[in-house]
Design a binder for these strands. Sequence first.
DNA 1: TAGATTGTTAATCGATTAACAATC
DNA 2: TAGATTGTTAATCGATTAACAATC
Lengths: 213, 213
Amino acid sequence: MQQSNKISLPVIKRLPKYYRYLKLLKQNGKERISSRELSTRLGVTASQIRQDFNCFGEMHGRQGVGYQIDVLIEILEKLLLNGERIPTILIGAGHIGKAVSRFITTDANGYKLIAVFDSSENEVGKQIGDITVQHIETLERFCKENKPQVAVLCVPRTSSKELSSKLVELGIQGFWNFSHYDLSVPYPNVVVENVHLGDSLMSLGFRLRNENN
Amino acid sequence: MQQSNKISLPVIKRLPKYYRYLKLLKQNGKERISSRELSTRLGVTASQIRQDFNCFGEMHGRQGVGYQIDVLIEILEKLLLNGERIPTILIGAGHIGKAVSRFITTDANGYKLIAVFDSSENEVGKQIGDITVQHIETLERFCKENKPQVAVLCVPRTSSKELSSKLVELGIQGFWNFSHYDLSVPYPNVVVENVHLGDSLMSLGFRLRNENN
DNA sequence: TAGATTGTTAATCGATTAACAATC
DNA sequence: TAGATTGTTAATCGATTAACAATC
C-alpha cells in the first residue's frame, strides 16, 4: 500500500465518483468490469482508471478479465468510509444549512451530525432531523465537551472569518464551507472543502456566453 | 482580445474568485492593487494572476504601480455578466432546490429565474420568491413557448437521466446540476456544471482520515 | 492457443511558476 | 533616478495518456 499522503488531490476527488458508480453497477447485478468499459461509462480514459486504482494497493484486477466489482467497492469503502463516523456540527440553519444537513446525516457519507447552531432566535429550538438547533452562544462550551471534528459552515460571509478561526482554536480539523469566504487561505493545516455555489454558477454563465465547453 | 474559446477551464473557474474579492476591496475603499498583494490575499502566485489577467485583452496594469481595481472589476463584469440575464428554470422544489433558487434570483450572478417545476402535488402552487411552482407535466409546453436557456436540476438521480435528455431536445444549453447523475458524460455539446455535494463531502472525509492536505 | 486486459513505465500534454526586459 | 511591477517568454512541474510486456 502506497503512502496515502502521496495521493494527489485530483485522484482523491475522483474516488467518490468511482465508488458510487460501482455501487450502481452492482445494484444492477453486474459482477465484473474492465477499465475500458468503466471508462466509456464515466467519460474518462481507461488509462486514468488503471493509474488511479494503482494508487491503492491490490485491486486484484485480472489480465484478460477485468476487475471484480465487489472487490473494488470494498476497497473504496475502506478508503472513503473506514472507521467511526466523523462527529460533525452544522453552523447556520438557514436554507442551505437545512438542505446540506441531509448529506451529513446520511450514513452513506461517513459523518455523524451531533449539533446544529444558529444565531437567530427564530431557528433556535427547532428540529433538524433529530437534532435541536442551539444558540450560537453555546458553541464554545459544546465543542470543549464534545470535540467535534468537522464543521459545516452555512453562514453569511461577514461572520465566517472570525467564526472559522474560533473553530480552529476549538479543535476543528476540517470544514465543509458554503460561506463565500474562502477558507483555504487562512488555515493551511486544516482540511477544507470550499463549495462556492455562486462562483460555480457564474463560471457556467461565462462558458455559455463564450461557447466554451 | 484573445479568442475566449481558448481560455482554459482552470482560468475560467478562478474568474469569479477574482471578481468577488476585488469588489470587496473596492468596498473597503482600496483603489489600486499589485499582482503580488492580490496573490498573498488569495493564496495563489502573483505569476498566475498576471497570466490569468493577460488572457483577457487590456487590463491596463501599469509597471511599478499595479492594477486599478475599478478597471479590473469592470472588465471581469463584462466577461462574467455582460448582456441579458440568462433565462433559467429550476426543476425540483425540494430542500436543495429552494436553497439554490436564491443564487438564480440574485441579480449578481447574471441569471433570471422564469419558472419552477416539481412533480409533487405538495409543492405545486407554492411560491418560490415571486414564482409559482408548476407541475412537471407543463414543462414541455413551457419550454417551447419561453425558450429557457439553462436548467437547474435538483431532482433525484432516478429521474435525472431522462429529464436531462428531454431538456436538451427542448433547447436547453446549460445545466447547473445537483442530481447525483453526472451530466458531463452524455452531452458533450451542452455546458454543464456538476455540483456533487455528496462527493465533495466524501473526499473531505478521505483527506481527514489520511491527513492529506 | 488467441484475445483481452492488467499493471507499469515512458511520452505527452497542459498548467503553473520563474525569470527578466520594458517601463511606469 | 531608483524601486516597483507589469507583460510575456521560457522553464518546471505534475497530471494525463499512450504503449506494451506480462498473463489471465
